[in-house]
Amino acid sequence: MNESSIGLLFRYLPLRLSVAVNSLPKDILENINEIRLRKRGALSVTLGVTNLFLDGKGNICPLGSAITVTDEEINECVRRLTEGSLYSYDEYVACGFIPLSCGGRAGVCGKTNRNGFSEIYSVNLRLHRFIPDVAKPLVEELAANGIKGTVVCSPPAFGKTTFLRSIAYLLAVGKGIEPKRVAVADERNEIAVGIFGSGLLDVLSGMPKGEAITLLTRTMSPEIIICDEISANETESVLEAQNTGVSLIASVHCRDINELKKRGRMKQLLENNVFPLCVVLGYDGGYTCKVMKTEDFL
């Protein structure tokens, strides 16, 4: 992440808000993960697991003194995100996000009707980091012991998607390992941002993960499929892929391994040896990454 990628997000912010964010000290600016706008609520930025509020001059302040985002500013932000043509983004908005022209996406929420959102109340501009070496410990493990299915777990905002992006890149270009045919099931246009066209990487975006895993397995004969945030809905597709010999690297939201084991469907996948490896991401003053064998804790 660098300042220029934050700069790309400024084009989506109304002037008053972009001036405030841009006034932050450089070291904070460079580490922002999210910029959040809430209608008639506070403007905030997220750094790792910390939420910061800004006053009109871009100083960090308590919640009570933070800039209040006006209705017009939220509308302007949405207009900028959709190039003044909300109808063009109907299908995405109905799924709760707007893809950004610079890559990445903005999460949205608000009032819904049967067609999707009738009004947008909040916008979360997410910055997508590409840190190539963050998944190096896993690559070393895979290079030493062969390709294996891996589950990456952590609470939200601990860098699961960044880790998946990194592992997709390292495996596809063959950094520290022989290049592999990697297919990314990128339902929400997040994982492949910044790594399109790298090595042996194929990307299927915008399709529900379960369907994408099945399609990729049948049509692209990948060695590894990578996807974000698998849930109970994808269990069948994951097991089907496993039976064809494709390894899956996927992430799940969970606090720790005990929580992971308690989930019925996830336990089923672990017991079926879909994920012989587990990567736990954490935060201990800095981001941590621990690679484990699942048999050790089952």
Binding site: V78, R79, T82, G84, L86, Y87, D90, V93, N115, G116
Partner: peptide, 11 residues
């Protein structure tokens, strides 16, 4: 209002 409405409402 043009461009601020969803498809069905816009049409």
């Amino acid at each position: 209002e043009l461009g601020t409405l969803q498809l069905e409402d816009q049409l």
